[in-house]
Amino acid sequence: MRTNTTHPTGFARVILSPLLYRAARYTLAAIFVYAGIGKLADPAAFAQVIAGYGLLPGPLVPIVALLLPALEVAAGAGLVFDLRGSLASIGGMNLVFLFVLAYGMHLGLDVDCGCYGPGDPEGEAYHGLKEAFIRDMGLMALVIHAYWWRRVRGVRPLSIPAAIHILIHPREKA
């Protein structure tokens, strides 16, 4: 029996769906924008959360407490428009977060993960790094799916100049 390889069916149709790709992108974007805004709202408190891990020298902590959330917001916003580099930024940050959480679990730290900013209800309710690690693994699965989808479908994200061109001239092709 011959199978039709040009038109996916069943499960393949679902995972290759442009709708699922957009859902993964928009979910990642929303989470990272929300997390970044929460941290930018109180960078001094977020700096304390960062310092609790003991991974950075003191003078770098306030700088990272400002730059990291700004990058989260920028990468999340870029992912909404599928801009080149956005998914890589989110994937890279998520890998760093996974390593930091694994380090904290290894040391047995009892600290807020800092995922959504200081004083966020999720961090206060669970106050555990394991839950954050599991959630971030799920986010990494979304990142991997998005990369895989792009590769299989042959889709390339937009460059910033192409995105600007589309915004200025919406009826023309970039």
Results as ranks from 00 to 15, higher is better:
L98I: 11
G52C: 11
P118I: 04
L139I: 13
G104R: 06
H165D: 12
D110E: 13
Y34S: 10
Y103H: 12
I63F: 08
L56Y: 01
P8I: 03
I15T: 14
V49S: 10
P121N: 04
E131C: 00
I90S: 08
A41W: 10
A24S: 15
V155F: 08
Y147L: 13
H127L: 13
F46I: 05
I15W: 15
A77N: 00
D110Q: 14
G54Y: 12
V155Q: 11
A132M: 09
A146N: 11
R171N: 05
L98R: 04
I164L: 13
L158P: 00
A70L: 15
R25A: 14
L67V: 15
L28W: 02
G114L: 08
V152W: 02
I134E: 07
H7N: 15
G123C: 06
V96W: 07
I37T: 15
F46N: 15
V143K: 04
V14T: 12
E131G: 11
Y147M: 13
E122H: 03
Y53W: 10
P157L: 06
L40Y: 08
V64E: 03
I144P: 02
D120N: 14
T27D: 04
A65S: 14
T3N: 07
A88L: 11
E131F: 13
P118G: 15
D82Q: 05
G108W: 04
Y26P: 01
L71M: 08
Q48N: 14
I134V: 15
C115P: 02
L60W: 10
G138K: 05
L16N: 04
L87N: 01
A75P: 01
D42E: 12
F99H: 04
Y147Q: 14
P69I: 11
I168W: 07
L129Y: 00
E131P: 02
A141G: 15
L71S: 11
L66Q: 09
G10N: 08
L56E: 00
S89G: 15
I164R: 03
L20F: 03
A35D: 11
T6D: 15
M93F: 13
Y116R: 01
M93E: 05
G104N: 12
E131D: 09
A174Q: 11
A45D: 05
D112R: 05
A163W: 13
I90K: 06
L60M: 13
P170G: 09
Y34I: 01
R151A: 13
R151D: 01
G92C: 06
K173M: 09
L95H: 00
R13V: 00
A74C: 04
G108T: 10
T6A: 11
P69W: 12
G117T: 02
T5M: 09
L66C: 10
A45W: 05
A41Y: 09
A70Y: 08
A29V: 07
V33L: 03
T27L: 15
K130I: 05
R13N: 07
Y21Q: 05
L16E: 13
A132C: 09
P118K: 10
P157S: 10
G108P: 00
M137N: 06
L158D: 13
A12P: 00
G91T: 10
A65I: 12
G108D: 03
G128V: 07
A41C: 01
A65H: 12
F11D: 00
G123W: 06
L107H: 12
I134A: 12
A163P: 00
P161E: 06
P161I: 08
R150I: 00
P161C: 03
